[in-house]
Write a protein that binds this DNA or RNA. Structure first.
Lengths: 354, 354
DNA sequence: TCTGCATCTGACAACGTTGTCATGGAACAT
DNA sequence: ATGTTCCATGACAACGTTGTCAGATGCAGA
C-alpha cells in the first residue's frame, strides 16, 4: 500500500543543500561548484558534467542573496518599484513593461503601493533599501525627495516615473502633462466652446497641478479669459467627482465642455452628464485613456498616455545607471495623444447658457 | 560660491555604513548595535540612545539580506507572487490585497507575470527560489506542479491562487467557477432562453474549463440539451472573441443568449453584438466584473469575483504556513455574485431564430 | 566579606557565497 | 633536461549579520 506524499506529515524539513553538499557529492571544491553554477570559464568539461549531475541530484539552487554579500560591487539582482497602487491599471502597465525589460537581465521587482501617502513613501523606500535593491524606480508624493540624497550619493540608482522629484537630481520619465492638457483645451475651443470647466485631482499630486496649468494655459493662449474657467479640484474619487460635476452642470451658468484630469474623475463626470441627460450635449475630454472608452455613448475623447513606453524607458534608465552610467540626471518626457471618440467633439448647444 | 550637489560628479561612492561603523562610532560592540536596531531587550537605556544617535548620524540601514543568512530559521521577509500578468486588473486587485496584508508583517512582495506560459512559470519560480523567499503565492499554467514537491517538502510555504495545483498538495484560494457559471446558465434560462452560446478562453487554463463545465451543467440541470449549446473556445483575446461571436450570431440558428468566460471575451462579444445591432436583443452575461460595466448600453450583467477577498485570504494562508501551520492542505472557495445590469435580463426576441 | 543572581555587554563563529591567490600538472619552448 | 606558460582546481578570507556564550559589573542576602 502506497501513501500519498503529504508534506505536512511525513518528510518535511529536509534541509536545503548548499554548495558544500554539491561539492562533496561531486568530489570537487566549492569554488568549482561556484564556477559551474555561475557559468564561469576555467572548468574542464568532465568536471562540469559531474558538478551538474550533482546539482540536479540534490536539486541544488544557488542562493543569490548570499552571493550578493561578498564584494560590495555585487548586486542583489532586484529593484524596488513604488507605484501609486499596484491595482491601478496605469501603474500595472508601467510595472509590466518594466518587468519585461528587467527580466532579460534576471532582475526581480519588488512592487509596492504608495497610496499617495508621504509616510508610506518613506517606509516603503526604507523597506526596499533594507533589502539592498540595486535601484529604485519611484512614483512619489512627498513634497521633497531630498531625504534620499544620502542614498543617492552612495550610488543608489534612482529613476522617478510619472512624477518628477523635488530637492534631488535624478532621472525622471514623465508624461507630457502640460502639453496634453493644453491640447484638450485647444480641441474644445476649436469646437466652439468658451465656457469650460476643469475637474482635478488632489492638488498635492504633481501631475494634477501640471494638467491644470496646461489646461488653463491652453485656454489663455486661445484668447479666452481663464477666470471664466470653472475649476474644481481635490476630487479624489468617482463620488466626489460626480458631485462636483453635478453641481457645476446644474449651476447658474454651466460649462458647455468639461476636462477631467484623471480616470476616476472622468468616470464621475460621465455619470453626472448621464444622470442629467447631458452626455450628448456637453463635451468631455478625459486625461488618460481607459478600457472601453470607445464603447461608451458617446465614445470618450481622451488624452492618452503611454504607460508601456514610460515603463520601458524607466527600465532602460535604471539599467544604464546600474551599469555605471554617470551622465547628468535627465527628465524624459513621453508625449500624449489626443484620441477623438465623440465626447470631445460635441459642439456647444444652441440653448446653452440658460 | 556654492555648488549644487550633483551625485554624478562630486561625492559619489561613499560606502554604505555597516554595523561595525555604527559600533565604533557609538563605542560599543556590534552585537549591541544589532540588539538596538532589532529592538531586542538587554540594552541599557543610555547605550540604546548612544547607538541610535550613531545610527542616525551615519544614516545606517540594517541589511536584512545579510541577517537572513545566519541561522537557517531566519527569514528573508519576502514572498514571491506569480500572477497571470501584473497589468491585469483582476491580478492587480489580488496583488494589492496581499500587499496590504503582508505589509503589516514587514514582508515585501516580488511580483511577476506568468503570461500563461509553462516555461515562464518554471523560470520565475526558480528566480523566486534563488532569492530565498519565505513563501510562494502562485497562479499556474503548467499541467502539473509536481516539480515543486522537493521545495514544498523543504518546508517552503505554498499557496495557489485562482487556479488549483495539480500533482501536489497545497493550499489554494479559488473562485467558485462552476457554481458561478451555473448561476449564469440558470439566470439566462430563467429569462426564457433555450438557444445558448458559451464563449471560452484557452482550454488549458483551468478556470476556463471549470466555467465551461459549470455552464453546461447548469444548462443540463434545467432540462435543456447541452448539445444545443454553441461552444467556442480558445478565444485568447478580444479580437478572436469578436470574430467567434460575430460568426455565431450571423449563423443559421443563432443563440439568443451568450455567456462569456472572461473579460476580454466579454468585450469581444459586446463589440460583436453592437456591430450587429443586437445588443438590446441578445442576452449577455460575462464572467468577472469590470470597470464601467454599469455604464454600458445596456449595462452588462456579470458573475462578479472577489479578487480582494482572494488576495486577503491567500495572504492569511501564506502567513499561517510561514508561521508553522502544518495542518493538511486545503482549498478555499470564494463565492461569486451575479450582478444584474440589463444585458443578462434581455428575453429572447419574438423574431429570433430567423 | 563572600556568594548568588540578574543585567548588560562583546568576542567569536557561523550563515552560503565569491574574490584572491597559490598549487600542481601538462604542454611547450629552449 | 630545464624553464616557461597555461589551465584547472581548491584553500581561505571576507561579505554583514545574528546566535551562542562567557565575562564583567552591580547588588542583595547571608
Amino acid at each position: 500500500m502506497t501513501t500519498m506524499s503529504n508534506r505536512y506529515q511525513s518528510d518535511s524539513g529536509r534541509k536545503r543543500p548548499t554548495m558544500k553538499n554539491v561539492a562533496d557529492l561531486a568530489g570537487v571544491g566549492i569554488k568549482t561548484v561556484s564556477r559551474v553554477v555561475n557559468d564561469e570559464p576555467g572548468v574542464s568539461e568532465a568536471t562540469r558534467q559531474r558538478v551538474m549531475r550533482a546539482t540536479e541530484q540534490l536539486q541544488y539552487q544557488l542562493d543569490i542573496t548570499a552571493g550578493s554579500l561578498k564584494r560590495s560591487g555585487r548586486k542583489t539582482q532586484s529593484i524596488g518599484l513604488l507605484l501609486p497602487s499596484v491595482s491601478n491599471p496605469f501603474s500595472g502597465e508601467i510595472h509590466r513593461a518594466m518587468e519585461d525589460a528587467l527580466a532579460v537581465r534576471g532582475i526581480a521587482v519588488f512592487a509596492a503601493s504608495l497610496d499617495d501617502d508621504p509616510d508610506r513613501e518613506r517606509k516603503l523606500i526604507s523597506a526596499f533599501l533594507g533589502r539592498r535593491v540595486d535601484g529604485l524606480v519611484l512614483t512619489t508624493i512627498a513634497k521633497s525627495q531630498a531625504y534620499m540624497i544620502p542614498e543617492h550619493s552612495r550610488d543608489l540608482p534612482l529613476v522617478f516615473v510619472d512624477r518628477e522629484p523635488a530637492g534631488i537630481e535624478a532621472d525622471a520619465v514623465v508624461t507630457d502633462n502640460e502639453i496634453g492638457a493644453a491640447k484638450a483645451a485647444a480641441h474644445l475651443i476649436q469646437h466652439g466652446h468658451t465656457r469650460l470647466a476643469y475637474l482635478g485631482d488632489r492638488t498635492d499630486i504633481q501631475t494634477a497641478g501640471r494638467r491644470r496649468t496646461g489646461f488653463l494655459d491652453g485656454v489663455g493662449k486661445a484668447g479666452i479669459s481663464t477666470s471664466g474657467v470653472a475649476v474644481r479640484e481635490n476630487l479624489h474619487d468617482e463620488e466626489t467627482a460626480f458631485r462636483a460635476a453635478h453641481e457645476l452642470l446644474t449651476s447658474e451658468n454651466p460649462p458647455t465642455a468639461v476636462f477631467s484630469s484623471q480616470n476616476l474623475v472622468t468616470f464621475g463626470a460621465m455619470r453626472a452628464l448621464r444622470a442629467l441627460g447631458l452626455h450628448h450635449k456637453v463635451a468631455l475630454i478625459g486625461f488618460d485613456d481607459f478600457t472601453l472608452a470607445d464603447m461608451m455613448d458617446p465614445g470618450i475623447t481622451v488624452i492618452a498616455q503611454h504607460p508601456e513606453r514610460i515603463g520601458k524607458l524607466a527600465a532602460e534608465r535604471i539599467l544604464a545607471r546600474i551599469d555605471g552610467d554617470e551622465s547628468p540626471a535627465q527628465t524624459y518626457v513621453i508625449p500624449t495623444e489626443l484620441i477623438q471618440r465623440g465626447s470631445g467633439e460635441i459642439r456647444p448647444q444652441a440653448d446653452a447658457g440658460k
